[in-house]
Amino acid sequence: MLAFFQNILYNFFISLGVMIGGCFFGGVAATLNGHPPLKTMLDLCNRIKVWAIIVALGGTIPSIKVLEIGIFNGEVRGLVKQVVYILSALLGAHIGYMLIYYLEGSGSL
């Protein structure tokens, strides 16, 4: 049970880190190229959100395999675990997106 909660945290923070790190370094590259960094960071956030989730899950093939076994073989426990892992990674990616969004100034805290 402890490993389950640890994996939830890993998935959350890995996807959060991919979003923030990718957008931050993309903003540095935009600055070096003479483009507006905050706008570039926000554009990158939209493009890499799905990839942050995939990276956090360790690729799509193991996740799809677990979902397949859960659906077709009736192993509900594995299916629920995988859905929770996906939601955790999705939440981390979305929070990373929102942090960059508020940094850019499009939203207000």
Rank of each mutant, 00 (worst) to 15 (best):
M1D: 11
L2A: 15
A3D: 13
A3Q: 11
F4Q: 07
F5N: 08
I8S: 11
I8D: 14
I8A: 14
I8W: 11
I8R: 10
L9F: 14
L9I: 11
Y10A: 07
Y10D: 10
N11D: 08
F12E: 10
F12I: 11
I14F: 00
S15Q: 06
G17F: 01
M19Q: 01
G21M: 00
G21Y: 00
G21C: 00
G21H: 00
G21T: 02
G22T: 02
C23D: 02
F24Y: 13
F24W: 09
F24K: 15
F25M: 14
F25H: 12
G26D: 15
G26A: 08
G27V: 14
A30H: 11
A30E: 11
A30V: 08
A30L: 04
L32D: 03
N33S: 09
N33W: 05
P36E: 13
P36H: 14
K39S: 12
T40H: 03
T40R: 08
L42Q: 13
D43E: 05
D43M: 13
L44Q: 11
N46L: 06
N46M: 14
R47L: 09
R47K: 07
K49N: 15
V50H: 13
W51E: 15
W51F: 13
W51I: 08
I54H: 08
I54C: 03
V55R: 07
V55S: 06
L57M: 15
G58M: 01
G59T: 06
G59L: 02
T60C: 03
I61R: 14
S63D: 09
I64S: 14
I64R: 13
K65W: 09
L67V: 12
E68F: 13
I69W: 03
G70D: 04
G70K: 07
I71V: 11
F72K: 12
F72L: 13
N73T: 15
N73I: 14
E75K: 12
E75V: 13
V76M: 13
V76C: 05
V76D: 06
V76R: 12
R77A: 11
L79W: 03
K81Q: 14
K81F: 06
K81A: 09
V83W: 00
Y85T: 05
I86A: 01
I86K: 00
I86S: 01
S88E: 01
S88R: 03
S88I: 02
S88Y: 01
G92D: 05
A93C: 05
A93L: 09
I95Q: 08
Y97T: 08
M98P: 14
M98K: 09
L103Y: 13
E104M: 04
G105C: 01
S106M: 02
S106G: 02
S108E: 02
